[in-house]
């Protein structure tokens, strides 16, 4: 098993054993631009990913003319 990261309709698979922050950088997501959640709980990105984890990333950037 591996770790699943989902962001909107995108899904990434990474290996366990690294921090969320490292995993985000690996798949090319800016840590500043998302909030990681697991089972609906907000978690900090220094958490080490475990086998079978599913991390739902909430996008925080919004735009357009304000």
């Amino acid at each position: 098993m591996a770790v699943r990261l989902t962001l909107r309709d995108k899904e990434f698979t990474v290996n366990p054993g690294t921090t969320i922050r490292q995993a985000l950088k690996l798949v090319g997501i800016q840590p500043e631009s998302v909030i990681p959640t697991r089972d609906g709980e907000l978690i900090t990105d220094d958490e080490i990913l475990k086998d079978g984890d599913h991390i739902r990333l909430i996008a925080v950037i919004s735009g357009g003319s304000l």
């Binding site: 909030i35 909430i58 919004s62």
Partner: peptide, 8 residues
């Protein structure tokens, strides 16, 4: 506030 704070 940073955007991720208002989102959180």
């Amino acid at each position: 506030f940073y955007e991720r704070e208002t989102a959180a």
